[in-house]
Every structure is written in C-alpha cells, then in structure tokens.
Amino acid sequence: MSVQSHPPTPVRVVSARSALWSVAMTAALIGFGLAVIAVATAVGYLAVGLPNAVPIVVGLAGCMAFAIALGVLHRGWWLSVLSVAPALLVLVGAVQLAPEAVLQQRGVAQQVTITDVQTTGKRHAFGLQGDTGRLDEPLVYRGSSPGYRVGQRLTVLIDPQGRVDLTDAQDVDPAGKQRMLVLGATGWALFALLAGWRGHVSRARGRAASEPPW
C-alpha cells in the first residue's frame, strides 16, 4: 500500500516574495515622504506673499497622507501617532523656510525702538520707530508671551517688495528650518523602516496561522 505524498508547500518562495513586497512598499513610503517635503517646501516658496494657510493646508494634507500610509504598511496605528513629532518638524520647516530665506536674501536690516503695543486676543502688534521715522508696518507676535516691551531696541528685517511680513532679525534662521526638514525626513524614514519590518512580520504570522496543519 503506497502512501501518496503531497507536494511541498513553497514556503520559502512565498516568504521571499512577501519580503520583496515589504521592501518595495517601505522604499515607496520613504520616497512618498520625501516627495511630501519637496512639494510642501515648493508650495511655500510659490506662496510667498500669500496667507500662510496655503502652505499649511498643503503640508497638513501631505503629513496626514503619510501617517495613513504608515499605518497601512505597519498594520497598526501607534506608529502613525508617534510620527506626529517628525511631521511637526516637516510642517514648520516647510512653511517657514521660504519667507525666512527671502528675508535673508533681500531683507533690509533696520534698528528700531518699540514705541507702543496693541493687543487683540493673542495678537500683539508692536509699533516701531526707526532712525528716519515711524515704520508703517508693526512687528506682529501671535501668542501669550511675546517677550517684547515698549522702549526695547532691536533689529528687524524688512522686505523691500512687501511680500513678507516684517520680522525680528533674530527669528530669521532658514538654515535652522532646513535642519528641521532634514530631521523630519530622517524621522519619517526611520518610522517607515520600522513599519515595513513590523508589517512584514505581522503578515507572515497571519499567513502561518492560516496555513493548514497538515
């Protein structure tokens, strides 16, 4: 009496295909994250002179899309929640890089004195007196603790084309915003690698559990 044997299950082939798929999806997610950063930064430059809401909306949409893709690849959502930290670096860097770079490139530095302040909610508008007279544009700070006082001397950068708001020269740091983008991209890449590995392990366990025991 002969015993009929079943052909061996190509476990290694399936596993190799799954690993290649996970690697490809991880690489695609990293590329997508870099594309989000590039597009958000480009929109920031194109939107110089427009309300900040334009690059903010584009950046938020890209960050949300990356978080969703990360959760799908990971087959879980806690990594997506943790990816908010590098996403904030990406968003702030992409939105603020362009106007600060413009001010650094063509901004005119001027010594001014704060003469008065008008507060509306959390918006503080500080009147400025320069060497040649009072400036038409105030220094605007949005927040609860502006850190400026009447009588204070400081240096501001003024865009001669009027497309970028007057800004405290100490706050203009495009190199710092570039570092934020690099850190954000690095964080996203690390999360994508972790998501790809954990997603691959999860899918492999799911296949193993669904295989028949014989």
Rank of each mutant, 00 (worst) to 15 (best):
G62N: 02
G62M: 07
C63V: 15
M64A: 15
A65S: 11
A65H: 07
A65T: 11
A65K: 08
F66N: 08
F66W: 10
F66A: 01
A67T: 11
A67C: 12
A67Q: 10
A67L: 10
I68M: 15
I68C: 15
A69Q: 09
A69L: 15
L70H: 01
L70I: 09
L70G: 04
L70S: 02
G71W: 05
V72P: 02
V72Q: 15
L73K: 05
L73H: 06
L73N: 04
L73G: 00
H74E: 09
R75L: 13
R75N: 06
R75H: 11
R75Q: 12
G76I: 08
G76S: 13
G76H: 07
W77D: 06
W77C: 05
W78E: 10
W78N: 10
W78Y: 13
L79V: 01
L79K: 09
L79M: 12
S80G: 14
S80Y: 02
S80I: 08
V81T: 13
V81A: 14
V81R: 12
L82W: 12
L82P: 07
L82M: 14
L82F: 13
L82R: 09
S83E: 00
S83W: 04
S83L: 03
S83Y: 07
V84I: 14
V84R: 10
A85K: 09
A85G: 13
A85W: 14
A85I: 14
P86C: 09
P86K: 00
P86L: 09
A87S: 14
A87I: 01
A87Y: 00
L88S: 11
L88R: 07
L88N: 06
L88A: 15
V90Q: 08
V90S: 03
L91K: 02
L91T: 07
L91Y: 02
V92D: 15
V92C: 14
V92Y: 15
G93Q: 04
G93I: 08
G93K: 05
A94V: 04
A94D: 01
V95F: 03
V95Q: 07
V95A: 02
Q96S: 15
L97C: 07
L97I: 08
A98H: 02
A98G: 01
A98N: 00
A98P: 03
A98I: 08
P99M: 06
P99F: 01
E100R: 03
E100H: 08
A101G: 02
A101R: 11
A101I: 08
V102G: 06
V102F: 00
V102M: 08
L103R: 03
L103D: 06
L103G: 00
L103A: 00
Q104D: 15
Q104M: 14
Q105G: 12
Q105K: 13
Q105R: 14
R106Y: 10
R106C: 02
R106M: 05
R106W: 02
G107C: 04
G107S: 01
G107D: 09
G107K: 06
V108E: 13
A109W: 01
A109Q: 09
Q110Y: 04
Q111R: 08
Q111M: 03
Q111T: 12
Q111S: 13
V112C: 03
V112Y: 02
V112A: 06
V112N: 04
T113E: 11
T113S: 05
I114T: 01
I114A: 00
